[in-house]
Structures are given as structure tokens and as C-alpha cells.
């Protein structure tokens, strides 16, 4: 029974991906991309990786889809042209080689098999009981720090490119009751995911993405007016995550002599503080990626 489901799911992923690539209408293509992302999230649940599934559904499908739609709105409609057969054959060959290399790397690398045993051996020291959070915020917190830095660099790039802000349009009378229910629920769910990340799947990235989703409802519904002042505040909050994480890294260096080795017995409170700030910061970063940066007139710089 579940085998049939898995096979259907695998075909569904390939089919929706092909549909997303095959259509010339940008919006339909993005819809295909979002559905593919949701099906991939479902397959990750089937593979026993609910943390990745949550991140894929919230960031991969949800917010990336929103970002793509926002970009499609700024571009002209796609020209419908058929690329020559030789181009398509080359692209297909590159895709097959890439997939083959990935499959080879996954099947030959020993890391995937070694990791769970190593993590479960030291889980008690990490301050949390969810192995994924233990790896992300304790054993390999360094990687997460760099990830936040990468996200911030992306934000700086958007600042340099300075895209136009999306114009809020009047969305009708149903938007207000929708926002009244969905936005508080997003805030509530983000807090829940953040808190439960210590013991079961969840965490800062997922919580931040859901919070960002709620904020986007407010912005696109026209309930929150994007003043330059508000955008500057958003920028500050976005910077705060990287700043707090870096300060935490330096203070652990000072306290214990090792970068991001938390003091004995206090690991949980350190992790929770960092994750709470990261949630707000990630939400602010994702929102700013969507709606663009504060713009100053040239003579003001």
C-alpha cells in the first residue's frame, strides 16, 4: 500500500517538474514549481526527514514560489520559442551527468551512515533532544553561522540591485477576515515550531519562514504600509541575527576557549536564545528579499 503511494509520489514529482519546465506561461510554470516543491516535501516525510520537509515546504515551495511570482510580475511575458534540438540534447546530457554524479556521491560517501551513531552518542551533551537541532546549533553551529552570513550577503545583493517595491493592490473584502485568522496563526505556529525545535522537528529556519509568510500577508493585503522607516527597522532586525550569533560565537570563545562550544549545562539556553533571535532575523530577511530595500534619493547618500 505504501509502496504504491511512494511510486505515485515519485512519478508525481517528475511529472510536475516536467510540467513546470514544459509550459511557456511563467505563472503556470511557477505553479508547477510550487507543487513540485510540496511533493518533494511529502517525499522527504516518507524518507523520515521531517525537518528538511518542513524547510522545503515553507522556504523551498512557499517563499521561493512567492519570490519567483514577484519576479515574474516585473518581467515581460515569456516569448514562446522552441530551442533547437542540439541545445536540448546537450542540456539533457548535462542533467543526466549531474544526476549521475550526485547519485554516485550519495551512494559512495560514508558520512550519511556514520553521522547518526556519532550524533546519538553525544546527544546528551548538546542540551537538546532533537538530533537535527543538536547538529545545527551545537555540533556544527559554525556551519549555521555561515549560512546566516550567506543569507545576509543575498540581502546585501538585493540592496545593491534595488528592485522596485511591489505595489499593493486592493484585494477585496475577503482579505481582512483571511488576514485576521492567518496572521495570528502564523505568529503562533512560528513560536510553536521554535520552541518544539529542541525536542522534535522544527527550528529557527522553519519558524522564520512561517513568520515571514504571515508578514507577507500583511504587506500584500495592504494592512502594513511599507514606509522607508519600517524597511530600515526591518534591515536592523535582519542584521541582528548575524550580529547576535557572531557575538555568541565570540563569547563562547572567551568563556570556554573554543568557538561555539557552549558552557557546561547552559547549552539549551544558549541555543534557545540564538534560535529565537535567528527566527526574527530570518523572517525579516525573507520579507526584505521579497519587498526590496529602503531606497534613498541619490543626493541623500
Amino acid at each position: 500500500m505504501s509502496l504504491a503511494f511512494d511510486i505515485l509520489l515519485a512519478f508525481g514529482v517528475v511529472f510536475t517538474a516536467a510540467a513546470a519546465l514544459g509550459t511557456h506561461d511563467r505563472v503556470a510554470s511557477i505553479a508547477g514549481f510550487v507543487v513540485t516543491g510540496l511533493l518533494v516535501a511529502l517525499s522527504l516525510v516518507r524518507l523520515g526527514a521531517p525537518d528538511v520537509a518542513l524547510a522545503e515546504a515553507a522556504i523551498g515551495a512557499g517563499l521561493t514560489g512567492a519570490l519567483l511570482l514577484r519576479s515574474a510580475w516585473r518581467l515581460k511575458p515569456a516569448e514562446s520559442r522552441v530551442s533547437p534540438a542540439i541545445d536540448r540534447i546537450i542540456v539533457a546530457l548535462i542533467a543526466v551527468c549531474l544526476s549521475g554524479a550526485l547519485a554516485w556521491a550519495v551512494y559512495t560517501a560514508p558520512g550519511a551512515a556514520l553521522y547518526p551513531a556519532l550524533v546519538s552518542e553525544r546527544l546528551a551533551e548538546s542540551g537538546v533532544t532533537n538530533p537535527v537541532t543538536a547538529v545545527l546549533l551545537n555540533f556544527r553551529a559554525w556551519d549555521t553561522l555561515l549560512e546566516i552570513a550567506v543569507l545576509f550577503v543575498a540581502l546585501i545583493l538585493v540592496r545593491i540591485v534595488a528592485p522596485a517595491h511591489p505595489q499593493p493592490v486592493v484585494l477585496g473584502e475577503l482579505m481582512l477576515p483571511f488576514a485576521r485568522i492567518v496572521v495570528p496563526m502564523c505568529a503562533f505556529l512560528a513560536g510553536h515550531l521554535l520552541w518544539q525545535g529542541a525536542s522534535v522537528p522544527g527550528g529557527a529556519f522553519q519558524a522564520g519562514a512561517i513568520l515571514a509568510g504571515g508578514l507577507l500577508v500583511l504587506m500584500l493585503g495592504g494592512f502594513a504600509v511599507l514606509t522607508p522607516r519600517l524597511l530600515s527597522w526591518g534591515m536592523m532586525v535582519a542584521l541582528l541575527g548575524l550580529a547576535v550569533f557572531a557575538v555568541a560565537a565570540l563569547s563562547t570563545e572567551a568563556l570556554t576557549g573554543t568557538l561555539l562550544l557552549y558552557p557546561d549545562g547552559a547549552a539549551k539556553i544558549w541555543i534557545l536564545m540564538i534560535e529565537a533571535v535567528l527566527t526574527l532575523s530570518i523572517a525579516a530577511m525573507l520579507c526584505l528579499l521579497f519587498c526590496g530595500m529602503p531606497r534613498r534619493p541619490l543626493n541623500d547618500v
Binding site: 475577503l174 482579505m175 485568522i181
Partner: peptide
């Protein structure tokens, strides 16, 4: 509840 709510709202928006 969430799916019904977003379904109603999105249907309304598309029709609009």
C-alpha cells in the same frame, strides 16, 4: 480550516 479559508480567499481573488 486553513485550507478552506485560503481556498475561499484565493477563489475570490482569482475571480476578482
Amino acid at each position: 480550516v486553513l485550507v478552506a479559508l485560503s481556498g475561499v480567499t484565493i477563489g475570490h481573488l482569482i475571480a476578482r
